[in-house]
Design a protein around this nucleic acid. Sequence first.
DNA 1: ACCGGTCCCTGTTAGC
DNA 2: TGCTAACAGGGACCGG
Length: 302
Amino acid sequence: MPELPEVETVRAGLADHVLGRTVLTVQVYRESAARRAPGGSIELVSRLRGRTFVAAVRRGKFCWLTLDGRDEALLVHLGMSGQLIVRAPGPDPAPQPHPHLRVRLGLDDGSALDFIDQRTFGHLTVVDLEPTADGLPAGAGSPDDRIPAPVGHIARDLLDPHLDTGAVVARVRARRTGLKRGLLDQTLVSGVGNIYADEGLWRARLHYARPTETARPGEVTRLLTATAEVMREALAVGGTSFDALYVNVNGASGYFDRSLTVYGQTGRPCPRCGTAIRRDSFMNRSSFSCPRCQPRPRHGHW
DNA sequence: ACCGGTCCCTGTTAGC
DNA sequence: TGCTAACAGGGACCGG
């Protein structure tokens, strides 16, 4: 499940491999991959063919390739299983295309950029760019202050140097919900998904259901700092282990799993105290935590 | 404006 | 063995 570190790995790979390339052909193998555009695949093809990639930018889990003229971009969201793979020039070595190949962009040097997505939550769209709300650079890899219109409501992410952490702490505490819900709300702070939320909460020794309104400023700051640390460490691992020839990420089975402390570790001992990690159902998904390091808040206790 | 629930989608796995 | 249900989950959307 690609979250910020995985998407940043993809962005860096795109910056290395497709900038300066021009799109010659666009093949859409599954219409729903282009569903975010009103005109669907027809619009994707017409707005993309003949265009040149001039920047690879990311904010949170959204990534975009700015197009020549800098008024439009190819916007990508990987959903939960999306991959972007650069296929080297030359005949395709595989006898038949990947079963989950959704879109293939043929580039002017004979290479191809493949969008592969098993669970189909990801999508590609060509969108207009607009000025950022704060006038600052849009995100990682951005040469300017322009952001895709559909990403305007997404907050800066935890690794953005322009992130105002104090303001995020205040906004989280102003909410009436649980800490994990706040951390996963991409309009408060972006880039965090279920995996890194659980890892950050464990590192900060906070329970996922802790009410935001009773969380002290220092605790929320600790949560944000801890989650950013986990993501920085994952990024360092992923950045060194992906094949330089390919832009390739599969968060579900990739390189980032190995350093996970609580996510998916039901029954295994907590590295801090040895207590068995437990799994709870929360927000219709799983939450993993240490019952001792992250005690459940009792009503009225705080 | 905020908040929580629902749905979209496919492949794998657990359980009867 | 064969079927069904649960599970993985980001984000748009909707009703309160």
